[in-house]
Design a binder for these strands. Structure first.
Lengths: 259, 259
DNA sequence: ACGGCACAGCGTCCATCATACACTGTATCC
DNA sequence: GGATACAGTGTATGATGGACGCTGTGCCGT
């Protein structure tokens, strides 16, 4: 399957592989508002923003699967084909929804000082966004275009590490690690259709009830998890450990600065 | 069209919400081999394993989107409806593929001692599994059934923490945090259709090229990332930080043991 | 021995979905 | 005052997951 694809595979745009190239570029254009702004013709009745918001409403309520071109259009009172005047395809629409769903990271309160409190706040806020729009978890797997807001979150995290003396690459790694932790935690605490319900723990508990013998260590550990309040502390625990480790690393870097 | 059509909403199984209940139970049955084993009738020509392997082949080659009932059946030389004699639906098939994709965690080499080397090895191996079958990333979003292998991975991680004196709930949290980190890292280093291509970094780089002014800290940091070998160390960096933090926490717990 | 029944595999049918394409009307520029 | 670019619509199409009923097969109880 090269660039041409002269094999079978006419018809639909694409299915899975190789779609990234074209779609990614189109989505980036959309997300970064690099669009020509038409001059002639009837005025557009809709906005990208309006459309995306409609999609978000559906996704928040009934999950990402409820976001069909039909449903989005119906929610706006238009036909689905009208949407294609604004969006190249569904993938791009979801990408737009996702970036809007994250929103810009709120500015850190003026009192916040030091990289650690900043990053803690950052992580908790990001977590809240994931919980508020659980479908963003589904929407952000695999290669995909990044929107301005998503990049802005990264920027803020890296900025928080300004005074640490870490090399830039490691600042980036810290941000990525934290984002990953937040993401993974959110993924475990959120149900498939969007409702937070400690889904992961519930499933594990269900299984261990029936197979304690097979997983002795896990069963013992999990009994204590259930006894305590569940997984509510999963975000904080990992966050604490990671930032402790980062702290250590910063200290070590200061003592033995890189050449 | 038949005469009877006055019912509301017969037909398809479900779309998004609430499907979890029924499907999850069915999938658990399948994954944990709690199936009755038929006595009468013709011998099944296929196996769950065979079917799942066929699906995995497609997913490995062309991504999860290539896994359609049609394609899987064709790969086996049967019609798609034959598959429904083995699998309740596609969701369950993918769940099965996923669990087989993880496989059982290999036993730790006999020389491995101490929780830290064990967990490091564990994390690296898990990472390899994600990279070997990138579609498992897509397949493991949202609420979903866990298979025996997936639970076995958790078991091994918790077991590695046996001598640490950590409370059970925290062992579990450590395992979850590590698994989350591995997952998130894999997600960033793997392309959408399954090819590892440092996708995330490539996209970020592309964007920052055009918007350096808007994200100064990130741009500066990222320049160094690009100068170095890319993101190959993302897994190890986060792993090091997390385990450092865990180490600290274990030491603290020993000094100030919980009641 | 044998007939019924449970079960394998298949063919057909259908609803849903993303998207292509052609058409109609409209607002702006020359 | 057109020509033209563009908005919204209607219809068509191919792919997909899945329901349902049919045909054959092989074990089990009689």
């Amino acid at each position: 399957m090269g660039a041409a694809g002269n094999e079978i595979e006419i018809g639909k745009k694409d299915t899975a592989a190789e779609a990234g190239g074209d779609t990614l570029a189109a989505a980036l254009e959309l997300l970064w508002s690099e669009r020509p702004a038409p001059k002639r013709g009837p005025k557009p009745a809709l906005t990208l923003e309006t459309i995306a918001r409609a999609g978000m409403g559906l996704a928040d309520a009934d999950g990402l699967a409820a976001v069909t071109m039909q449903n989005v259009a119906a929610a706006l009172g238009y036909t689905k084909m009208a949407l294609y005047r604004y969006v190249p395809g569904k993938v791009e629409l979801v990408a737009l929804m996702t970036d809007i769903g994250f929103g810009a990271p709120p500015a850190l309160p003026s009192g916040t000082e030091g990289w650690r409190p900043s990053l803690e706040l950052w992580a908790r806020r990001l977590f809240e966004r994931f919980v508020a729009h659980p479908w963003t978890l589904e929407a952000t797997v695999g290669i995909r275009p990044l929107g301005p807001n998503e990049v802005a979150w990264l920027e803020q995290a890296v900025q928080s590490l300004a005074g640490t003396g870490l090399p830039g690459a490691e600042k980036f790694d810290v941000a990525a690690t934290l984002a990953g932790h937040v993401r993974a935690t959110a993924q475990q605490s959120v149900g498939g259709d969007g409702k937070p319900e400690q889904a992961f723990h519930a499933t594990v508990g269900l299984i261990l009830d029936r197979h304690q013998d097979r997983y002795p260590a896990l069963s013992a550990a999990f009994a204590e998890v259930a006894a305590h309040g569940g997984q509510d502390q999963a975000l904080e625990f990992g966050l604490g450990r990671i930032l402790d480790g980062v702290d250590l690393h910063i200290a070590a870097t200061r003592e033995r600065p890189r050449r």
